[in-house]
Design a binder for these strands. Structure first.
Length: 223
DNA sequence: CCAGACGTTGTT
DNA sequence: GTCTGG
DNA sequence: CCAGACGTTGTT
DNA sequence: GTCTGG
């Protein structure tokens, strides 16, 4: 799955990798947790021909029909195998797809002595993109809220010893298809596969990062 | 018809 | 909003 | 995802 | 055990 990740790349690098004009200024983040703001890349809202934009939204999808915010916490992830059909996700799957930039993500290995966190990233150490969905929600009093979720799939051989699920990572050649309004559901589903393991690497990190309050650079430092 | 659910993870 | 269960 | 709280009363 | 906060 994907319940914690890092995004430390400078805004200018994110802008050039994804081809967006401007990325909001933000400090490097090494321990991003559900309910926190996350950066997403999407077609400009209601003017898709105007290109891509990068904005911050809350991590945890809130379907437009939700009565209150309580549902969002549980929807930090969506299973790729069922996301096209599940009531909470299918509408976003059709019309609200996004990319979620990251430098890598964390998974926990259950060991006799407790949960051991690992950091997993591209061997190239380049920026990567999770396949995501976003939604626009309005509170009963009219207050708007934008949210997003990260799609998961089976772990590949590199991740499997640590955990049996991992986020869907899209390759740059697939960004346009994932975001495109014209892409058929069948072709979208074909993108929701584990990234080949030979492109990735992993290493152990400090257990101190398991507490989401610890946000320093040491979270993703090898131990 | 109305009422109620709508999710993932890990663990058992 | 839309589907399922009663 | 993991960590941490989980309660009421009365008093300050 | 289950929910909330980060």
């Amino acid at each position: 799955m994907c319940g914690r990740f890092a995004l430390k790349a400078p805004p200018a690098d994110i802008a050039s990798h994804f081809g967006v004009d401007a990325v909001p200024e933000a400090a490097p983040r090494y321990n991003i947790a559900p309910t926190q703001p996350i950066l997403i890349v999407r077609h400009r809202w209601q003017q898709p021909e105007a290109g891509l934009e990068a904005v911050h939204v809350k991590w945890g999808l809130l379907p437009s029909w939700a009565k209150d915010e309580s549902m969002a916490a549980k929807l930090a992830n969506a299973r790729g195998e069922t996301v096209a059909e599940k009531p909470a996700f299918r509408s976003a799957f059709r019309r609200m797809r996004c990319l979620i930039p990251a430098d890598g993500f964390y998974e926990w290995e259950a060991t006799p002595s407790g949960k051991q966190p690992w950091f997993i990233r591209l061997k190239s150490q380049e920026l990567l993109a999770f396949a995501g969905l976003w939604e626009h929600w309005q509170a009963p009093d009219g207050t708007p809220l934008e949210t997003a979720t990260i799609i998961t799939t089976d772990a590949n051989e590199l991740v499997r010893p640590v955990h049996d699920r991992m986020p869907v990572i899209l390759q740059p050649a697939d960004y346009a298809a994932w975001l495109g309004a014209q892409t058929k559901a069948e072709d979208l589903k074909a993108l929701l596969k584990p990234l080949p393991e030979d492109l990735m690497e992993r290493y152990r990190v400090s257990r101190r990062m398991s507490n989401a309050r610890n946000e320093g650079e040491e979270c993703m430092a090898p131990v």
